[in-house]
Design a protein around this nucleic acid. Structure first.
Length: 582
RNA sequence: GCGCCCGUAGCUCAGUUGGAUAGAGCGUUGGCCUCCGGAGCCAAAGGUCGUGAGUUCGAAUCUCGCCGGGCGCGCCA
């Protein structure tokens, strides 16, 4: 429809260009859109306004000229100039009817396009360290990332979803020593854990498992108090000493055993958590594999050879400030250990060597200071940093009604994603997470998410779907037959205002999906669906569907049938189910 | 102090990338099926778009200053 109008407009402009020998160009600022006020027509273009500024003429006069040159079309009832010089198109009443057939034909593909032309995109999200269960902050990144991935897939990109597993490095060592200390407690030793060790209950249960598998065979001398006791303001190097002590006391194999027990247990829990949340990945990419494959070293070597690294205070620095970062960053610590940043550089460089033309990272907003350095590194390695889009999600706060749920990661007192999902359900959780623009702080109201009332947009939308299912069920009970095949109903009978409005809305769905996808903004789909559900409920209250007249009945059933299809398609993109009964 | 994000109705938020009289939901007030699911529908009230300037035919949207809130600024991730 939009393309059709665009073509009419182009023809008119071409004619005008010749007749009056005008010189103007048409760029992105020239648009055809559906105005919010339907008195301004079904579609509206600002082309006269934009061009008038270019050629220095009166926009209204120009608009009149354009309108006079627009070829006749069966679909357009009238065209008029309004306001400062908008050209408004009023469509023929029957022009939207085609949309029902389109949806029936496309089915679950309605809204999809081949815009992306199969271009491969890698989207990495969540990627939380496997040092503990996912909490509600990760949940937002998960819901958002999954929705963005679905959207991009819908517009024709070849999307791979990846979880980067930080299964190497210091955080994991801290996990290992935490486990061992808990284990020693089980062996009967009295030990207080360092403040920065992982304290949660899950550590205890993994330690218990190690204890029941290995008995007391991993018992060693307790580390000296001087290593264990320190305040968190003390140098982190004490923690390094404790790691070193544990490694030598246990030996490589035993240490690795504890390390891997923790890693595997927790990673498995994360995996099931996400799966229960409706999210599956194509790859789980291991950091350790980067190190053992020498990819990190190679990357450092490459940077070094090209003169991007220098030594200072015994450490190796990358000159990220030359590429817009605030300061230079350490790649290899004076201890000789590579930083996480070093692995991240290699990881991101490889994303493009693996054949992806675009990579998307989804991070918590607290990591935004990291963006500049990673892009700097890509530039230094000859990769266009524009190919990497880093999307930030702001924090989510939990509210129980008016009361904010207090959380602190330090003491291990945080609400896990699993708890949240079990309390409010997968659908409501997924919807609430993406309901807000991602760069907006999210107040997640548990009471609202759980309430089975019209306050809750998830149930409101699902209810519309279930209601349609119920009508279709009733229809069969009453012995009416209906086959949802394109072209077998008299759609021209759909003349009620609610029907016209629904049709226009359904026709706009592909545009919504497209815009939401290219802008990485799934919340548009959520708003659209709420709106569509509202239009349906209005229709439901205003008109009877299962009427005696067969022609009218078939037409109306066809309409609500395609409404159901679009609700399903939209919810599916958001990872929310469309139940037939509630 | 520097950098990023945010400020829109009593509350929670949209606002189609600069368009026409700024919109939803909740809350408030008043109405609506003898009928396909009342988990529904309709209507009313409610605004200095934080603030001051600038850019132009036109600004919630773009630029700059200020005010207020969040986050970041480590040889942590």
């Amino acid at each position: 429809m939009k393309q059709h109008l665009q073509q009419l407009l182009n023809e008119a402009l071409d004619k005008l260009r010749k007749q009056e020998s005008l010189d103007f160009t048409i760029d992105n600022s020239v648009k055809i859109e559906q105005p919010r006020d339907n008195r301004h027509g079904d579609f509206s273009s600002n082309c006269a306004l934009v061009i008038a500024t270019q050629i220095n003429s009166n926009p209204r006069e120009l608009a009149d000229k354009i309108v006079n040159n627009i070829p006749k079309s069966e679909l357009v009832e009238k065209t008029e100039v309004a306001g400062p010089g908008f050209i408004n198109f009023f469509l023929n009443k029957h022009s939207y009817l085609e949309i029902i057939n389109n949806i029936l034909d496309a089915g679950e593909k309605y809204g999809c396009s081949d815009f992306g032309k199969g271009e491969p995109i890698l989207i990495e999200f969540v990627s939380a360290n496997p040092t503990g269960p996912l909490h509600i902050g990760h949940g937002r990144g998960a819901a958002y990332g999954a929705a963005v991935a679905n959207l991009l897939e819908a517009i024709g990109y070849k999307v791979d979803r990846e979880y980067y597993v930080n299964d190497a490095g210091r955080q994991m060592d801290i996990l290992a020593i935490s486990l061992w200390l808990r284990y020693l407690q089980l062996c009967g030793h009295e030990i207080t854990l360092p403040v920065k060790a992982y304290q949660g209950e899950y550590i205890k249960s993994i330690a218990e498992k190690i204890y029941s598998d290995k008995g007391k065979s991993l018992q060693r001398d307790i580390p000296e108090q001087s290593i264990l006791e320190y305040s968190d303001t003390t140098d982190e190097k004490q923690l390094d000493e404790l790691i070193k002590y544990t490694k030598t006391a246990l030996g490589e194999d035993n240490y690795r055993y504890i390390f891997d027990s923790g890693l595997n247990e927790i990673l498995e829990e994360i995996r099931t958590d996400l799966q229960d949340f409706g999210i599956t990945y194509s790859n789980w990419y291991s950091e350790r594999s980067l190190l053992s494959g020498n990819q990190v070293n190679n990357c450092i070597k490459q940077l070094k050879e090209n003169g991007y690294l220098y030594e200072k205070d015994g450490a190796l620095w990358f000159c990220s400030s030359k590429y817009g970062d605030e300061k230079d960053r350490v790649v290899v610590r004076d201890s000789g250990q590579a930083t996480y940043f070093a692995s991240d550089i290699a990881y991101h460089k490889l994303k493009f060597e693996r054949g992806y033309t675009r990579a998307i990272d989804i991070w918590g907003a607290d990591h935004h200071g990291y963006i500049a350095r990673i892009k700097a590194a890509l530039s230094a390695l000859g990769v266009d940093p524009e190919k990497l889009d880093i999307l930030l999600v702001q924090f989510a706060s939990l509210f129980r009604g008016k009361e904010k749920v207090q959380m602190s990661t330090r003491s291990g007192q945080f609400v896990t994603l699993k708890e949240l999902r079990e309390e409010v359900g997968k659908d409501a959780t997924r919807y609430f997470y993406i309901m807000r623009k991602s760069e907006q702080h999210l107040d997640f109201d548990l009471e609202l998410a759980k309430s089975q009332s019209n306050d809750n947009p998830v149930y409101y939308i699902q209810y519309a779907h279930a209601r349609i299912c119920s009508v279709l069920h009733q229809m069969h009970e009453k012995g009416f037959d209906f086959t949802p095949e394109a072209g077998n109903a008299e759609f021209s009978l759909l003349i009620e205002p609610q029907e016209q409005s629904l049709l226009a809305n359904l026709a706009g769905y592909p545009d919504i999906v497209h815009a939401a996808a290219i802008n990485y903004e799934p919340h548009h789909v959520a708003y659209y669906l709420r709106d569509l559900a509202n239009e349906f409920h209005t229709y439901y209250n205003a008109c009877q569907f299962l009427v005696e007249s067969e022609q009218l009945r078939k037409a109306r059933i066809s309409l609500i049938f395609v409404v159901r299809q679009v609700i399903r398609n939209g919810l599916n993109l958001l990872g929310v189910s469309a139940p037939e009964k509630m």
